[in-house]
Protein backbone atom coordinates (compact mmCIF):
# COMPACT_ATOMS: atom_id res chain seq x y z
CA UNK A 1 0.00 0.00 0.00
CA UNK A 2 1.26 3.40 -0.86
CA UNK A 3 0.08 5.11 2.29
CA UNK A 4 2.70 6.24 4.72
CA UNK A 5 0.64 7.19 7.74
CA UNK A 6 -0.69 3.76 8.74
CA UNK A 7 0.19 3.74 12.43
CA UNK A 8 -1.12 0.70 14.28
CA UNK A 9 -3.07 2.90 16.65
CA UNK A 10 -4.79 4.65 13.79
CA UNK A 11 -5.68 1.40 12.05
CA UNK A 12 -7.11 -0.08 15.25
CA UNK A 13 -9.10 3.09 15.80
CA UNK A 14 -10.55 2.83 12.27
CA UNK A 15 -11.49 -0.80 12.74
CA UNK A 16 -12.96 -0.08 16.17
CA UNK A 17 -14.97 2.81 14.78
CA UNK A 18 -16.27 0.74 11.89
CA UNK A 19 -17.13 -2.35 13.92
CA UNK A 20 -18.09 -1.11 17.40
CA UNK A 21 -19.22 2.36 16.39
CA UNK A 22 -21.13 0.87 13.49
CA UNK A 23 -22.79 -1.66 15.79
CA UNK A 24 -23.83 1.02 18.28
CA UNK A 25 -25.20 3.20 15.50
CA UNK A 26 -27.19 0.38 13.90
CA UNK A 27 -28.48 -0.77 17.29
CA UNK A 28 -29.82 2.74 17.85
CA UNK A 29 -31.28 2.84 14.35
CA UNK A 30 -33.12 -0.49 14.72
CA UNK A 31 -34.36 0.34 18.23
CA UNK A 32 -35.63 3.72 17.06
CA UNK A 33 -37.16 2.10 13.98
CA UNK A 34 -39.06 -0.45 16.08
CA UNK A 35 -40.27 2.05 18.67
CA UNK A 36 -41.04 4.80 16.15
CA UNK A 37 -42.93 2.60 13.70
CA UNK A 38 -44.79 0.83 16.52
CA UNK A 39 -45.86 4.25 17.77
CA UNK A 40 -47.22 4.88 14.27
CA UNK A 41 -49.36 1.71 14.58
CA UNK A 42 -47.16 -0.55 12.48
CA UNK A 43 -47.38 -4.14 13.86
CA UNK A 44 -44.39 -5.02 16.07
CA UNK A 45 -42.87 -7.69 13.87
CA UNK A 46 -43.28 -5.58 10.74
CA UNK A 47 -41.53 -2.70 12.47
CA UNK A 48 -38.79 -5.08 13.54
CA UNK A 49 -38.34 -6.67 10.09
CA UNK A 50 -38.15 -3.41 8.17
CA UNK A 51 -35.73 -1.94 10.71
CA UNK A 52 -33.49 -5.00 10.54
CA UNK A 53 -33.38 -5.04 6.74
CA UNK A 54 -32.53 -1.35 6.51
CA UNK A 55 -30.26 -1.66 9.54
CA UNK A 56 -27.89 -4.12 7.86
CA UNK A 57 -27.65 -1.95 4.74
CA UNK A 58 -26.92 0.99 7.02
CA UNK A 59 -24.23 -1.04 8.82
CA UNK A 60 -22.52 -1.72 5.48
CA UNK A 61 -22.62 1.98 4.62
CA UNK A 62 -21.25 3.29 7.92
CA UNK A 63 -18.64 0.53 8.03
CA UNK A 64 -17.27 1.63 4.65
CA UNK A 65 -17.52 5.26 5.66
CA UNK A 66 -15.41 4.57 8.76
CA UNK A 67 -12.51 3.74 6.45
CA UNK A 68 -13.16 6.35 3.79
CA UNK A 69 -13.75 9.33 6.08
CA UNK A 70 -10.97 11.87 6.52
CA UNK A 71 -11.27 12.18 10.30
CA UNK A 72 -11.58 9.03 12.37
CA UNK A 73 -12.54 11.05 15.43
CA UNK A 74 -15.56 12.38 13.64
CA UNK A 75 -16.52 8.81 12.72
CA UNK A 76 -16.38 7.79 16.38
CA UNK A 77 -18.36 10.85 17.41
CA UNK A 78 -21.11 10.42 14.83
CA UNK A 79 -21.50 6.66 15.21
CA UNK A 80 -21.33 6.34 18.99
CA UNK A 81 -23.05 9.68 19.64
CA UNK A 82 -25.72 9.02 17.06
CA UNK A 83 -26.19 5.46 18.31
CA UNK A 84 -26.64 6.57 21.92
CA UNK A 85 -28.98 9.37 20.89
CA UNK A 86 -31.22 7.07 18.84
CA UNK A 87 -31.18 4.39 21.56
CA UNK A 88 -32.22 7.01 24.11
CA UNK A 89 -35.05 8.35 21.99
CA UNK A 90 -36.23 4.79 21.35
CA UNK A 91 -36.43 4.13 25.08
CA UNK A 92 -38.34 7.37 25.64
CA UNK A 93 -40.86 6.38 22.97
CA UNK A 94 -41.15 2.91 24.47
CA UNK A 95 -41.83 4.31 27.95
CA UNK A 96 -44.54 6.55 26.59
CA UNK A 97 -46.25 3.57 24.93
CA UNK A 98 -46.24 0.91 27.66
Amino acid sequence: MSTSTLSARHVISRIGAGVLGGYAFVWGFIALGIAGLYALDVPFHDAEAVSNILGFLLFLTVFLWAFAARSVNRVWLVLVGGGLLMTGIATLIEQSLV
Binding site: I34, I53, F56, T87, V98
Partner: peptide
Protein backbone atom coordinates in the same frame (compact mmCIF):
# COMPACT_ATOMS: atom_id res chain seq x y z
CA UNK B 1 -24.48 -12.48 2.52
CA UNK B 2 -27.22 -9.91 3.11
CA UNK B 3 -30.15 -12.29 3.62
CA UNK B 4 -27.96 -14.45 5.85
CA UNK B 5 -27.67 -11.47 8.16
CA UNK B 6 -31.41 -10.79 7.96
CA UNK B 7 -32.25 -14.42 8.85
CA UNK B 8 -30.24 -14.19 12.08
CA UNK B 9 -31.05 -10.56 12.83
CA UNK B 10 -32.60 -11.69 16.10
CA UNK B 11 -29.21 -12.96 17.27
CA UNK B 12 -27.14 -10.04 16.01
CA UNK B 13 -29.52 -7.34 17.21
CA UNK B 14 -31.66 -8.94 19.95
CA UNK B 15 -33.49 -5.66 20.52
CA UNK B 16 -37.00 -7.12 20.70
CA UNK B 17 -35.88 -9.28 23.64
CA UNK B 18 -33.78 -6.72 25.44
CA UNK B 19 -34.31 -3.00 25.08
CA UNK B 20 -37.75 -3.29 23.47
CA UNK B 21 -38.90 -6.26 25.56
CA UNK B 22 -41.84 -4.47 27.12
CA UNK B 23 -43.15 -3.44 23.69
CA UNK B 24 -42.64 -6.99 22.44
CA UNK B 25 -44.50 -8.50 25.39
CA UNK B 26 -47.33 -6.00 25.06
CA UNK B 27 -47.61 -6.97 21.41
Amino acid sequence: AFTGLVIFAGIYFPIGHTQMKSLHDQH
